[in-house]
């Protein structure tokens, strides 16, 4: 089944996540290749420039185009805040709805088995 068309805001966050996941500067073409899903080159470039305006991304010239990488400052500030908010709480599972966390050893086994069934 083909996924639904993604809204602009969602694209922005996916491009940002892709840049962070890469761990190295990416060209718009790299981003386009990573995200797939029939994204137009121009769309990717527009998003990258918007992220640059927000000072979340920097770029340097390379060849005839640019390469982009995420700015560390903002993410470090966010991480500091996160640590401050979370480390104070040994009971954070109880008060914060995390995506998925805190497996027991047995559960980890079950889960690995489920994953293996999947891929094989």
């Amino acid at each position: 089944m083909e996924a639904k068309r993604r809204p602009r805001g969602a694209l922005e966050s996916e491009v940002m996540a892709a840049l962070w996941a890469a761990g190295k500067p990416l060209s718009p073409a790299d981003v386009q290749a990573t995200l797939g899903g029939g994204l137009a080159y121009n769309t990717v470039q527009t998003i990258l420039i918007r992220l640059m305006d927000k000072e979340l991304v920097r770029r340097a010239a390379q060849g005839r185009g640019h390469i982009y990488w995420p700015v560390l400052d903002a993410a470090t500030t966010a991480a500091d805040r996160m640590r401050a908010a979370l480390d104070a709480r040994p009971d954070r599972q109880a008060v914060l709805q995390q995506f998925a966390a805190g497996l027991g050893a047995e559960d980890a086994e079950v889960l690995r088995a489920l994953l293996d069934e999947r891929t094989s």
Partner: peptide
């Protein structure tokens, strides 16, 4: 904790990235 975690910094779309090795969303 939500109030502490919410920051006024610019977000990419609706995402705020935190440079931290712990996988968390």
């Amino acid at each position: 904790p939500v109030r502490l975690l919410r920051s006024d910094q610019a977000a990419a779309g609706d995402v705020v990235m935190a440079a931290d090795d712990e996988p968390l969303a």
